[in-house]
Design a protein around this nucleic acid. Structure first.
Lengths: 155, 155
DNA sequence: TCTTTCTGACTACAGTTGTAAACTAAGAAT
DNA sequence: ATTCTTAGTTTACAACTGTAGTCAGAAAGA
Protein backbone atom coordinates (compact mmCIF):
# COMPACT_ATOMS: atom_id res chain seq x y z
CA UNK A 1 0.00 0.00 0.00
CA UNK A 2 2.29 2.76 -1.26
CA UNK A 3 0.28 5.33 0.63
CA UNK A 4 -0.07 8.21 -1.83
CA UNK A 5 -0.27 10.49 1.20
CA UNK A 6 -1.18 14.13 1.22
CA UNK A 7 -4.51 14.11 -0.45
CA UNK A 8 -6.02 17.53 0.03
CA UNK A 9 -9.47 17.07 1.54
CA UNK A 10 -11.92 19.94 1.26
CA UNK A 11 -14.38 21.06 3.89
CA UNK A 12 -17.37 19.16 2.55
CA UNK A 13 -15.30 16.12 1.80
CA UNK A 14 -14.25 15.88 5.43
CA UNK A 15 -17.77 15.01 6.39
CA UNK A 16 -17.95 12.12 3.98
CA UNK A 17 -14.51 10.92 5.00
CA UNK A 18 -15.45 10.88 8.66
CA UNK A 19 -18.28 8.49 7.90
CA UNK A 20 -16.01 6.24 5.88
CA UNK A 21 -13.29 6.27 8.49
CA UNK A 22 -15.71 5.55 11.26
CA UNK A 23 -17.50 2.69 9.56
CA UNK A 24 -14.34 1.27 7.98
CA UNK A 25 -16.25 -0.05 5.03
CA UNK A 26 -19.45 1.41 3.63
CA UNK A 27 -21.85 1.14 0.77
CA UNK A 28 -22.99 4.09 -1.29
CA UNK A 29 -26.41 3.61 0.21
CA UNK A 30 -25.12 4.03 3.74
CA UNK A 31 -23.22 7.13 2.82
CA UNK A 32 -26.20 8.64 1.05
CA UNK A 33 -28.35 8.05 4.11
CA UNK A 34 -25.79 9.46 6.49
CA UNK A 35 -25.11 12.56 4.46
CA UNK A 36 -28.79 13.07 3.89
CA UNK A 37 -29.48 12.96 7.62
CA UNK A 38 -26.43 15.02 8.47
CA UNK A 39 -26.20 17.61 5.76
CA UNK A 40 -29.37 17.24 3.77
CA UNK A 41 -27.36 16.39 0.71
CA UNK A 42 -29.17 15.14 -2.37
CA UNK A 43 -28.23 11.58 -3.32
CA UNK A 44 -26.21 12.80 -6.27
CA UNK A 45 -24.20 15.15 -4.11
CA UNK A 46 -22.98 12.27 -2.00
CA UNK A 47 -22.24 10.25 -5.10
CA UNK A 48 -20.21 13.08 -6.57
CA UNK A 49 -18.20 13.56 -3.40
CA UNK A 50 -17.57 9.84 -3.18
CA UNK A 51 -16.37 9.77 -6.77
CA UNK A 52 -14.07 12.75 -6.26
CA UNK A 53 -12.57 11.28 -3.14
CA UNK A 54 -11.90 8.08 -5.04
CA UNK A 55 -10.21 9.97 -7.85
CA UNK A 56 -8.15 11.87 -5.30
CA UNK A 57 -7.07 8.60 -3.79
CA UNK A 58 -8.63 9.14 -0.39
CA UNK A 59 -11.10 6.29 -0.76
CA UNK A 60 -10.84 2.91 -2.48
CA UNK A 61 -13.64 1.02 -4.13
CA UNK A 62 -13.68 -2.65 -3.11
CA UNK A 63 -15.61 -5.77 -4.04
CA UNK A 64 -16.32 -7.58 -7.31
CA UNK A 65 -20.09 -7.73 -7.33
CA UNK A 66 -22.19 -4.70 -8.11
CA UNK A 67 -23.12 -2.91 -4.97
CA UNK A 68 -19.48 -2.10 -4.27
CA UNK A 69 -18.11 -1.08 -0.92
CA UNK A 70 -15.77 1.72 -0.08
CA UNK A 71 -12.90 1.89 2.35
CA UNK A 72 -10.57 4.69 3.37
CA UNK A 73 -7.28 4.82 1.48
CA UNK A 74 -5.67 7.30 3.86
CA UNK A 75 -5.54 7.22 7.62
CA UNK A 76 -7.76 9.49 9.59
CA UNK A 77 -5.22 10.53 12.19
CA UNK A 78 -2.67 11.26 9.49
CA UNK A 79 -5.10 13.36 7.55
CA UNK A 80 -6.08 15.29 10.63
CA UNK A 81 -2.51 15.91 11.68
CA UNK A 82 -1.52 17.03 8.22
CA UNK A 83 -4.47 19.38 7.93
CA UNK A 84 -3.69 20.94 11.29
CA UNK A 85 0.02 21.29 10.54
CA UNK A 86 -0.76 22.86 7.20
CA UNK A 87 -3.00 25.40 8.83
CA UNK A 88 -0.45 26.42 11.43
CA UNK A 89 2.18 26.54 8.74
CA UNK A 90 0.75 29.66 7.31
CA UNK A 91 -0.04 31.49 10.48
CA UNK A 92 2.30 33.65 12.55
CA UNK A 93 4.62 31.48 14.65
CA UNK A 94 4.60 34.04 17.40
CA UNK A 95 0.89 33.58 17.93
CA UNK A 96 0.71 29.81 17.60
CA UNK A 97 0.72 29.36 21.34
CA UNK A 98 -2.31 31.57 21.82
CA UNK A 99 -4.26 29.80 19.16
CA UNK A 100 -3.42 26.42 20.61
CA UNK A 101 -4.60 27.72 23.96
CA UNK A 102 -7.89 28.81 22.45
CA UNK A 103 -8.42 25.44 20.82
CA UNK A 104 -7.49 23.42 23.88
CA UNK A 105 -9.73 25.50 26.05
CA UNK A 106 -12.72 24.91 23.84
CA UNK A 107 -12.37 21.19 23.20
CA UNK A 108 -13.34 18.13 25.14
CA UNK A 109 -10.22 16.20 25.96
CA UNK A 110 -9.96 12.93 27.84
CA UNK A 111 -7.80 12.43 30.89
CA UNK A 112 -5.43 10.46 28.72
CA UNK A 113 -5.26 13.22 26.12
CA UNK A 114 -4.50 15.78 28.76
CA UNK A 115 -1.82 13.62 30.32
CA UNK A 116 -0.22 13.17 26.96
CA UNK A 117 -0.20 16.87 26.22
CA UNK A 118 1.16 17.66 29.66
CA UNK A 119 3.97 15.24 29.15
CA UNK A 120 4.90 16.76 25.83
CA UNK A 121 4.80 20.23 27.28
CA UNK A 122 6.94 19.33 30.26
CA UNK A 123 9.49 17.87 27.94
CA UNK A 124 9.34 20.87 25.66
CA UNK A 125 9.72 23.32 28.52
CA UNK A 126 13.21 22.01 29.14
CA UNK A 127 14.53 23.54 25.97
CA UNK A 128 11.95 26.12 25.02
CA UNK A 129 13.16 29.61 24.10
CA UNK A 130 12.18 32.66 26.07
CA UNK A 131 10.24 33.86 23.08
CA UNK A 132 9.34 32.90 19.56
CA UNK A 133 9.82 35.49 16.84
CA UNK A 134 7.26 36.50 14.30
CA UNK A 135 7.98 34.92 10.95
CA UNK A 136 5.50 36.79 8.83
CA UNK A 137 7.87 38.75 6.63
CA UNK A 138 10.76 37.67 4.44
CA UNK A 139 13.93 38.43 6.39
CA UNK A 140 15.10 41.95 5.96
CA UNK A 141 11.70 43.30 5.07
CA UNK A 142 10.03 45.63 7.52
CA UNK A 143 11.07 46.56 11.04
CA UNK A 144 11.01 43.54 13.26
CA UNK A 145 7.46 43.17 14.33
CA UNK A 146 7.49 42.46 18.03
CA UNK A 147 7.67 44.89 20.87
CA UNK A 148 9.37 44.50 24.24
CA UNK A 149 6.85 42.25 25.88
CA UNK A 150 6.88 39.75 23.10
CA UNK A 151 3.38 40.84 22.32
CA UNK A 152 2.79 42.83 19.20
CA UNK A 153 0.54 45.85 19.77
CA UNK A 154 -2.18 44.17 21.76
CA UNK A 155 -5.14 44.24 19.45
CA UNK B 1 -15.90 49.46 14.50
CA UNK B 2 -18.73 46.98 14.16
CA UNK B 3 -16.31 44.18 13.50
CA UNK B 4 -17.90 42.23 10.65
CA UNK B 5 -16.07 39.19 11.99
CA UNK B 6 -15.76 35.85 10.32
CA UNK B 7 -14.25 36.78 7.03
CA UNK B 8 -13.14 33.56 5.37
CA UNK B 9 -9.50 33.94 4.43
CA UNK B 10 -8.09 31.59 1.82
CA UNK B 11 -4.66 30.02 1.82
CA UNK B 12 -3.02 32.57 -0.46
CA UNK B 13 -4.74 35.43 1.22
CA UNK B 14 -3.23 34.45 4.55
CA UNK B 15 0.19 35.40 3.29
CA UNK B 16 -0.89 38.88 2.32
CA UNK B 17 -2.76 39.31 5.57
CA UNK B 18 0.27 38.37 7.61
CA UNK B 19 2.23 41.18 6.02
CA UNK B 20 -0.56 43.66 6.66
CA UNK B 21 -0.98 42.55 10.25
CA UNK B 22 2.69 42.70 10.93
CA UNK B 23 3.28 46.12 9.43
CA UNK B 24 0.02 47.56 10.74
CA UNK B 25 -0.24 49.91 7.80
CA UNK B 26 1.19 49.30 4.35
CA UNK B 27 1.28 50.69 0.87
CA UNK B 28 0.53 48.65 -2.21
CA UNK B 29 4.16 49.01 -3.16
CA UNK B 30 5.35 47.41 0.06
CA UNK B 31 2.96 44.54 -0.33
CA UNK B 32 3.98 43.98 -3.93
CA UNK B 33 7.63 43.86 -2.92
CA UNK B 34 7.00 41.52 -0.03
CA UNK B 35 4.87 39.10 -1.99
CA UNK B 36 7.29 39.20 -4.86
CA UNK B 37 10.17 38.28 -2.59
CA UNK B 38 8.15 35.76 -0.68
CA UNK B 39 5.97 34.08 -3.25
CA UNK B 40 7.20 35.38 -6.58
CA UNK B 41 3.82 36.85 -7.22
CA UNK B 42 3.39 39.15 -10.19
CA UNK B 43 2.45 42.70 -9.22
CA UNK B 44 -1.08 42.20 -10.44
CA UNK B 45 -1.53 39.11 -8.32
CA UNK B 46 -0.82 41.07 -5.17
CA UNK B 47 -3.13 43.83 -6.33
CA UNK B 48 -5.92 41.37 -6.96
CA UNK B 49 -5.51 39.73 -3.57
CA UNK B 50 -5.47 43.11 -1.89
CA UNK B 51 -8.63 44.13 -3.68
CA UNK B 52 -10.40 40.89 -2.80
CA UNK B 53 -9.47 41.19 0.85
CA UNK B 54 -10.80 44.73 0.89
CA UNK B 55 -14.05 43.59 -0.63
CA UNK B 56 -14.24 40.79 1.92
CA UNK B 57 -13.78 43.30 4.68
CA UNK B 58 -10.49 41.96 5.97
CA UNK B 59 -8.52 45.05 5.00
CA UNK B 60 -9.45 48.73 4.95
CA UNK B 61 -8.12 51.33 2.56
CA UNK B 62 -7.06 54.53 4.37
CA UNK B 63 -5.81 57.96 3.39
CA UNK B 64 -7.13 60.73 1.14
CA UNK B 65 -4.21 61.29 -1.20
CA UNK B 66 -3.39 58.88 -4.00
CA UNK B 67 -0.93 56.30 -2.85
CA UNK B 68 -3.37 54.95 -0.30
CA UNK B 69 -2.43 52.85 2.65
CA UNK B 70 -4.02 49.69 3.91
CA UNK B 71 -4.70 48.50 7.41
CA UNK B 72 -6.16 45.27 8.76
CA UNK B 73 -9.88 45.34 9.45
CA UNK B 74 -9.89 42.11 11.43
CA UNK B 75 -7.59 41.05 14.23
CA UNK B 76 -4.87 38.57 13.56
CA UNK B 77 -5.31 36.51 16.72
CA UNK B 78 -9.06 36.34 16.18
CA UNK B 79 -8.64 35.18 12.61
CA UNK B 80 -6.14 32.55 13.63
CA UNK B 81 -8.28 31.27 16.46
CA UNK B 82 -11.34 31.12 14.28
CA UNK B 83 -9.53 29.29 11.51
CA UNK B 84 -8.18 26.74 13.95
CA UNK B 85 -11.52 26.21 15.64
CA UNK B 86 -13.21 25.81 12.29
CA UNK B 87 -10.74 23.16 11.29
CA UNK B 88 -11.17 21.15 14.47
CA UNK B 89 -14.90 21.56 14.18
CA UNK B 90 -15.06 19.16 11.31
CA UNK B 91 -12.65 16.56 12.56
CA UNK B 92 -13.38 13.65 14.87
CA UNK B 93 -13.57 14.84 18.48
CA UNK B 94 -12.12 11.59 19.69
CA UNK B 95 -8.89 12.27 17.86
CA UNK B 96 -8.54 15.95 18.62
CA UNK B 97 -6.12 15.28 21.43
CA UNK B 98 -3.76 13.38 19.20
CA UNK B 99 -3.73 16.06 16.58
CA UNK B 100 -3.09 18.72 19.16
CA UNK B 101 -0.21 16.63 20.42
CA UNK B 102 1.24 16.42 16.94
CA UNK B 103 0.99 20.15 16.44
CA UNK B 104 2.43 21.06 19.82
CA UNK B 105 5.28 18.70 19.32
CA UNK B 106 6.26 20.23 16.01
CA UNK B 107 5.98 23.92 16.90
CA UNK B 108 8.29 26.34 18.58
CA UNK B 109 6.62 27.59 21.73
CA UNK B 110 7.96 30.11 24.20
CA UNK B 111 8.29 29.42 27.91
CA UNK B 112 5.31 31.70 28.42
CA UNK B 113 3.24 29.83 25.86
CA UNK B 114 4.05 26.53 27.47
CA UNK B 115 3.24 27.82 30.91
CA UNK B 116 -0.09 29.07 29.65
CA UNK B 117 -0.96 25.77 28.05
CA UNK B 118 0.08 23.86 31.13
CA UNK B 119 -2.13 26.01 33.27
CA UNK B 120 -5.10 25.44 31.01
CA UNK B 121 -4.50 21.72 30.98
CA UNK B 122 -4.15 21.48 34.73
CA UNK B 123 -7.41 23.26 35.11
CA UNK B 124 -9.06 21.10 32.49
CA UNK B 125 -7.81 17.90 34.06
CA UNK B 126 -9.95 18.56 37.11
CA UNK B 127 -13.14 17.93 35.20
CA UNK B 128 -12.04 16.03 32.13
CA UNK B 129 -13.95 12.87 31.22
CA UNK B 130 -12.30 9.49 31.09
CA UNK B 131 -12.83 9.46 27.37
CA UNK B 132 -14.27 11.50 24.55
CA UNK B 133 -16.65 9.80 22.15
CA UNK B 134 -16.40 9.90 18.42
CA UNK B 135 -18.88 12.33 16.94
CA UNK B 136 -18.53 11.44 13.29
CA UNK B 137 -21.96 10.00 12.64
CA UNK B 138 -25.44 11.38 13.20
CA UNK B 139 -26.74 9.76 16.37
CA UNK B 140 -28.33 6.44 15.75
CA UNK B 141 -26.43 5.75 12.59
CA UNK B 142 -23.87 3.00 12.56
CA UNK B 143 -22.52 0.95 15.45
CA UNK B 144 -20.74 3.15 17.90
CA UNK B 145 -17.30 3.54 16.56
CA UNK B 146 -14.93 3.04 19.45
CA UNK B 147 -13.60 -0.18 20.79
CA UNK B 148 -12.75 -1.08 24.38
CA UNK B 149 -9.55 0.87 24.68
CA UNK B 150 -11.08 4.08 23.50
CA UNK B 151 -9.01 3.69 20.39
CA UNK B 152 -10.69 2.83 17.16
CA UNK B 153 -8.92 0.05 15.30
CA UNK B 154 -5.41 1.36 15.56
CA UNK B 155 -4.57 2.37 12.03
C1' DT C 1 2.38 71.77 -19.93
C1' DC C 2 3.63 67.43 -21.94
C1' DT C 3 5.37 62.98 -21.15
C1' DT C 4 6.53 59.18 -18.24
C1' DT C 5 5.49 56.33 -14.44
C1' DC C 6 2.83 54.68 -10.83
C1' DT C 7 -1.20 52.76 -8.88
C1' DG C 8 -5.80 51.72 -8.53
C1' DA C 9 -9.74 49.35 -11.20
C1' DC C 10 -11.42 46.11 -14.42
C1' DT C 11 -10.99 41.91 -17.16
C1' DA C 12 -9.37 37.08 -17.98
C1' DC C 13 -9.11 32.38 -17.39
C1' DA C 14 -8.37 27.73 -16.00
C1' DG C 15 -9.02 24.75 -12.03
C1' DT C 16 -11.56 23.67 -7.68
C1' DT C 17 -15.59 23.29 -4.80
C1' DG C 18 -20.40 22.81 -3.47
C1' DT C 19 -24.57 21.06 -5.28
C1' DA C 20 -27.23 18.33 -8.13
C1' DA C 21 -29.65 16.48 -12.47
C1' DA C 22 -29.48 13.00 -16.10
C1' DC C 23 -28.26 8.86 -18.13
C1' DT C 24 -26.93 3.95 -18.24
C1' DA C 25 -25.91 -0.61 -16.95
C1' DA C 26 -26.75 -4.32 -13.18
C1' DG C 27 -29.63 -6.75 -10.20
C1' DA C 28 -34.22 -7.75 -8.50
C1' DA C 29 -39.08 -8.57 -9.03
C1' DT C 30 -42.77 -10.41 -11.78
C1' DA D 1 -37.82 -12.26 -20.57
C1' DT D 2 -39.55 -7.98 -19.36
C1' DT D 3 -39.91 -4.35 -16.29
C1' DC D 4 -38.65 -1.84 -12.19
C1' DT D 5 -35.15 -0.24 -9.18
C1' DT D 6 -30.79 0.67 -7.76
C1' DA D 7 -26.13 2.06 -8.08
C1' DG D 8 -22.41 3.73 -10.81
C1' DT D 9 -20.98 7.26 -14.45
C1' DT D 10 -21.35 11.72 -16.94
C1' DT D 11 -22.53 16.19 -17.36
C1' DA D 12 -23.85 20.86 -15.42
C1' DC D 13 -23.12 25.05 -13.40
C1' DA D 14 -22.35 28.99 -10.53
C1' DA D 15 -19.13 30.71 -7.05
C1' DC D 16 -14.60 30.84 -5.48
C1' DT D 17 -9.34 30.55 -6.04
C1' DG D 18 -4.84 31.22 -7.79
C1' DT D 19 -2.55 33.84 -11.16
C1' DA D 20 -1.97 37.54 -14.07
C1' DG D 21 -2.71 40.99 -18.14
C1' DT D 22 -4.70 45.57 -19.48
C1' DC D 23 -6.23 50.16 -19.07
C1' DA D 24 -7.21 54.69 -17.27
C1' DG D 25 -6.50 58.37 -14.19
C1' DA D 26 -2.98 60.62 -10.77
C1' DA D 27 1.64 62.01 -9.63
C1' DA D 28 5.98 63.06 -10.75
C1' DG D 29 9.54 64.53 -13.85
C1' DA D 30 11.16 67.10 -17.93
Amino acid sequence: MLDEQHVAITDSEWELMRAVWTLHRVSTRQLIDIMQKERHWADSTTKTMLRRLIKKGAITQVGETRPYDYVPAVKEQDSMDTAAQDLFDHMCAMRTGNTLAAVIESRDLSQADIAKLQKILNEKAKTAPEMVACNCLPQGMGADCMTEGGERNGQ
